[in-house]
Computed example of a mutant assay.
Amino acid sequence: MPEGHSVHRIARQFARNFVGRPVQASSPQGRFAEGAAVLQGREMLQAMAVGKQMFLEFEDAVWLRVHLGLYGAWDFAGEIVADATIASANGRMGQTNQRGTDLDEAIFDDAGENSLTSIGAPRRTRVHVRMSEQTSGLSDEGDEWPPPVVGQVRLRLLNETTCADLRGPTACALQSTDEMLATIAKLGPDPLVGDVDEGEERFVRTVRRKPTPIALLLMDQAVISGIGNVYRAEMLFRARVEPHTPGRDVPEEVVRELWRDWVRLLSIGVETGQMMTMDGLGEAEYRAAMASRDDRHWVYHRAGLPCRVCGTEIALEEIGARKLYWCPSCQR
């Protein structure tokens, strides 16, 4: 499932390529035909993310809410404006990421991702499929416009230069402004939305009154927005917190540091497109980490391997139906 940094980057992509333009909307799959008919011809006014959910505003106070969930992804085609680069390419954002951006400092990781311009959390099998369809940044579809529909596309948004196809989302629904605000009100604070200090106080108050293990609280989107399995494991290790500690028993200063660490890590994730959670790396180490996911994290996906700090075997268990990685020595 894409974590918060991915969704913020997807929203940024919509802001660059769609906001301020009318869209053609369709549902090739047919499951969102009525909603697409409402969006047809409307100008997109705003794109924003809150945690793992994205909200696109259209004329006449119509909002599109999208939650990618475990299997959702956005496929972009055509002219994709990424930072200062305009690329004619295909790009997937969500489970995989942007394609075709050609930078002098590109670093390709072990799944073929350009780490410095990545958008999402890559899924290796889809990455390989996407790469196999490309030639010099272009898919086999060539210059055909709009590009042919491939697979089960829930929603296609199209303007004169860019196409965005949504596949497999957990949620894709139209909302009024009041409904959108009600949805956001149920979510925990996001460091990139609203006042960061107010978000900290809200997070601290919530955690400090809960008997729930802190490992579960960090994954609860009503407590804090955007954290998934990777960031959860890494943040707990970085703070040296025993994952099973009830939230109310975690010292207040530690809870505050968890929030502030999320502020830092989310910012890094949005800017780099990668969940880089190791600090103090030299230039060569940093480039190696960007090129290999195994070198980006302290404990995540390292079950049975020695802790990078103390050498203790990294533990793996299931908690809340998700895998938890942690060091039984460093996190006592």
Score class of each variant (00 low, 15 high):
residue 38 V to I: 13
residue 132 S to V: 06
residue 123 R to H: 10
residue 327 C to T: 02
residue 107 I to Q: 08
residue 318 E to M: 09
residue 202 R to D: 01
residue 274 Q to E: 10
residue 78 G to D: 01
residue 29 Q to I: 09
residue 319 I to E: 13
residue 131 M to K: 15
residue 220 D to R: 06
residue 316 L to M: 07
residue 168 G to N: 11
residue 93 M to A: 14
residue 57 E to N: 04
residue 1 M to I: 11
residue 249 D to T: 04
residue 252 E to L: 13
residue 214 I to A: 09
residue 149 V to W: 08
residue 179 E to F: 03
residue 267 S to H: 13
residue 254 V to Q: 12
residue 296 R to N: 04
residue 108 F to V: 12
residue 282 G to W: 08
residue 177 T to R: 15
residue 201 E to R: 15
residue 312 T to H: 14
residue 149 V to Q: 11
residue 31 R to P: 00
residue 240 R to C: 11
residue 130 R to P: 00
residue 223 V to K: 04
residue 324 L to E: 01
residue 219 M to V: 00
residue 46 Q to S: 09
residue 183 T to L: 06
residue 226 G to I: 04
residue 180 M to K: 13
residue 8 H to D: 09
residue 49 A to I: 04
residue 295 D to N: 11
residue 136 S to L: 14
residue 57 E to C: 10
residue 257 E to Y: 05
residue 326 W to A: 01
residue 123 R to F: 08
residue 204 V to D: 07
residue 227 I to K: 04
residue 75 D to L: 15
residue 307 C to E: 03
residue 59 E to M: 10
residue 198 E to S: 12
residue 3 E to D: 09
residue 79 E to D: 05
residue 49 A to T: 02
residue 127 V to L: 13
residue 146 P to S: 04
residue 3 E to W: 03
residue 76 F to D: 01
residue 282 G to P: 10
residue 151 G to N: 07
residue 28 P to E: 09
residue 102 D to A: 13
residue 255 V to L: 12
residue 63 W to R: 08
residue 288 A to N: 12
residue 193 V to D: 10
residue 303 A to I: 00
residue 18 F to C: 01
residue 151 G to A: 06
residue 163 C to G: 00
residue 13 Q to S: 13
residue 88 S to Y: 06
residue 137 G to F: 02
residue 201 E to C: 07
residue 173 A to L: 08
residue 215 A to V: 01
residue 8 H to M: 10
residue 257 E to H: 09
residue 297 H to G: 06
residue 306 P to G: 07
residue 329 S to A: 14
residue 109 D to R: 00
residue 282 G to S: 13
residue 102 D to T: 02
residue 205 R to M: 10
